[in-house]
Structure formats: structure tokens, C-alpha cells
Design a protein around this nucleic acid. Structure first.
Lengths: 227, 227
DNA sequence: ACAAAAGTGTTAGGCCTACACCCATGA
DNA sequence: TCATGGGTGTAGGCCTAACACTTTTGT
């Protein structure tokens, strides 16, 4: 038992994990709750913060424990503190967002109850996680203008149409193919793999990798992607 | 005494209050700590969250108690959870940012130890508040591209040179007078007060108010201010 | 053969930037 | 009278958005 002179809330971390593939579009990773409250409901992976770890460390740990994912880049996007958001006791959650490559990992997941849901088709969630998801999506839309989101969400080798579909899925709009291509080319972070010798028109798309050095240059000088 | 089965961190809120005037430029409101730890140091107004209030309510309450300010718009910009950020016990703080008109309030402040410091001239702060300030400034710079920051920081009636100086103070850059003026005019949220009948060149600047209706229109359709 | 998908280039308009002149104020 | 500060307009360049044609693949 732990005693304090004043009441303390419990503190948890939650992770909104975004993944992407061509079939399902933008998806989030959810786990089915095995205990009350909201037993059987889907929720974001997360759990109570330990006293010897900061919030980001805790979020990464919970993510690993519950889904087997080791997220590269995760970032904090909000803290949710409504008084009655958890029926058990006062719980405040620090929410993180992570972008991962859906296929790359998920090899040796053992007791993982985690499942991907397309964002358009997410079931009602436990606690206030519906609201957390809504805000995560808003923040993701903002982020996409300043960070090359494809780095984290797409496989290492990808095509321009794939990249465009990703942007369209996140922002919920449609772009002109030609304008999108030239805009991306101009940024200079796309590196053709050269696996397709002919650069003529063909139905098989050219494949690219991201040029990380060029991206880091851009990040330092500050860049913005207009849409 | 309050007992829990698992250890709980303490949770506080802190408010980074930005104000602005022509002489001092961009400033933050600090309070001098009267108790250990960091007694005598300056820190952001804030304090422990109560169990029956959410974080924003708590931030507003602490702000009112410690400085007498009733902030119009405050927004959460980060939660700080380093393990040893408070020497007493594990404390996590939810940080808010507020923009206020320096002169408008501060009439009947009684026991207020609060003082304004220009951001360029802030003393070393208690806890990790230096870091919190740095991040608040970064976020403010981002915000300024999407929100008409002048609304909250300038007095109701202001001049274009004043508005420009505010933007320059926040972003730390200089603008061309003519370009800045036309950019702002084009947004359509500036409403000349008409107190100066002659619209010819004169050394007395034209005064404006913000057109709030027009701003709300823009916010719904989404606007961006390039610099 | 025909539909679907990928690649490319041109044009018009708008925004950003850089820059010059006029006028009134106050020292 | 002269320096300072405020107001306005123009020209060039870049980026954006709209748009059409060719080629190949697969049915």
C-alpha cells in the first residue's frame, strides 16, 4: 500500500498506433480488453505508468508488452484528464501517437490480442478513446505538412501512387496525380531504386526509397508541404 | 491520508502566460516561489490538480489564485514527466499556454507575487521550467501560422506597426513593412477604426480592431499565414 | 480492342519578395 | 530642414492548380 497526504490520480499512457497498407488504408492498432471495466471492448494499448520511468518510456514499454511492436518514432499529442473518464478511480492518461510499417514487424507475436482496424471502421472504444482517436487524427493531419509521414508508414520501397494514396487517406482529399508527383519530386527526398530501367510510360510504377540525408537537411532548414 | 494499492505520481498544472507590450516585447508571467524546493526562484504559476477538476479547470484556477488573471484562451501544449523533475516526490505536470493582454487586467491584484519578464531576459527557473518555456515558445511559433495571435495579445485597438512588431517578436525575424501590411489586409480580419479620417500618408498610424466574424469564417474554412 | 493505370509538360493565376516614392511629424 | 516613420504600388519569380496525351498492361 502507498499512502499520500493528498489524493493522487492514477496516471496511464496510451498509444495510438497508425499503420498503413494499400488494401485497408490508414489503420489503428487496438487491443481487446480482458478485464473490467469495458471488458471485451477495444481500446488503445496502454497502462499504468511506473514510478521509475517517464511517460515516453512507459508508452513504449506498454506497447511492446501488449502488441510486440517496437515503435521508432512516437510522440506525445495530448493528456486527457476528465474527472470520470475511468469508472474505477481518477485516471489521467498521457497519449502518444506512433507511425509504424504494418507488415514489417508482427512476426513473433505470442499472446497478442492486438488487431488492426481501418480508421473508417473502428468499433466503439473503451473509456474516452473515441475522443482520443479523433484528436490523434487531427494532429496527424497537422503533422503531415511538416514531416515526411511516409518514412514511417510505408515499406522501405514504395511507389508514387502508393505515397499519394497514403496522403489522400490521411487528409481525406484527392490530389491531381501530376501535381502531386512534381511536388514530391521537387522536395528531393525521393530516390528512384532504378529497378525499372525504362523510364517511359508503363503501367508498372517506378519504385522509390526515401533519401534520409536529404530529409534531415530539409528538417533543419525547415520545410513545408502545401496542399 | 490517502492510500492506494499501487504508487501514484502527484499531478500538477503549470501555465505559461504570454503577454506583450511595445516596450518590453513578448513577456511571460512568473511567480516567486515562497516555499522549498526552489524557494526564491521564479516559476510558472501552477499547482496540484484537485480530484474533482480536469486539468484545464485546474490550470485556470491556479492561474487565478496566483496571479488574478482570468485567461480567455488557454491550451495544453505538453505534459512533463521526467522522473526526478521534482525533488520532493514524483510529480507530473500538465502544461498550458495562455495569451493575455498585459495591461487589460491586473487591476485588483492583492497578494500577487507575479511579475512579467521579457522572454529574452528570463532568470533561471525552478524545476524543469526552463525546458517548459523553451517548448512553449516553439509551440507558440507554430500556432502563430494558424491562429491570429494578435487577438489575445494586443489591446482591442492597435496599429499595423504594433501588430508587425508582435509577429517579429514571436518569430524572431524582421518583415518588410509593405509586404506584411498587404498580407494582413488580404486576410480581411483587420477593421479600420476610422478614427483617423485621412487615409493619406502621415506619421500617425491608422488604428484597427479585429473583425471576429471574419476570423471565425476563416477558421472554419482553414487558413494559413505564410512567412 | 479496350479500359485502366502510370508517366510527363504547359499554362494561367495567385502569392511572395524585393524594392522606391510621397507625405507628415517632430527635433 | 532633415531624419524618422507611416502609407501605398509595381515587377519578377516561384509555386499551385487545372488540364491532355502517350504508353503499356491485363482482360
Amino acid at each position: 500500500m502507498y499512502t499520500y497526504q493528498y489524493p493522487h490520480p492514477a496516471v496511464t499512457t496510451d498509444c495510438v498506433i497508425f499503420g498503413y497498407d494499400i488494401c485497408e488504408g490508414l489503420s489503428v492498432l487496438l487491443v481487446e480488453r480482458g478485464v473490467e471495466p469495458f471488458k471485451g471492448c477495444w481500446a488503445f494499448p496502454g497502462g499504468f505508468l511506473k514510478m521509475d520511468e517517464d511517460a515516453e518510456t512507459g508508452a513504449r514499454r506498454e506497447l511492446m508488452e501488449e502488441t510486440g511492436f517496437e515503435a521508432v518514432s512516437i510522440f506525445q499529442f495530448g493528456t486527457f484528464s476528465e474527472v470520470n473518464r475511468d469508472p474505477r478511480e481518477r485516471v489521467i492518461t498521457i497519449a502518444y501517437m506512433a507511425l509504424v510499417q504494418k507488415d514489417s514487424v508482427k512476426g513473433g507475436d505470442d499472446a497478442s490480442d492486438a488487431r488492426w482496424f481501418p480508421v473508417k471502421d473502428v468499433p466503439p472504444l473503451a473509456f474516452d478513446h473515441d475522443r482520443i482517436l479523433r484528436i490523434a487524427l487531427e494532429r496527424l493531419k497537422e503533422q503531415i505538412h511538416f514531416h515526411p509521414v511516409g518514412f514511417d508508414l510505408l515499406p522501405e520501397v514504395f511507389t508514387l501512387p502508393q505515397l499519394q494514396a497514403l496522403y489522400e487517406a490521411i487528409l481525406g482529399v484527392r490530389f491531381d496525380r501530376r501535381n502531386f508527383a512534381s511536388k514530391m519530386q521537387k522536395l528531393g527526398i525521393l530516390q528512384p531504386t532504378g529497378d525499372r530501367p525504362s523510364h517511359l510510360a508503363t503501367r508498372i510504377p517506378q519504385t522509390y526509397r526515401f533519401n534520409i540525408e536529404r530529409y534531415n537537411e530539409l528538417k533543419n532548414s525547415g520545410f513545408r508541404l502545401e496542399f
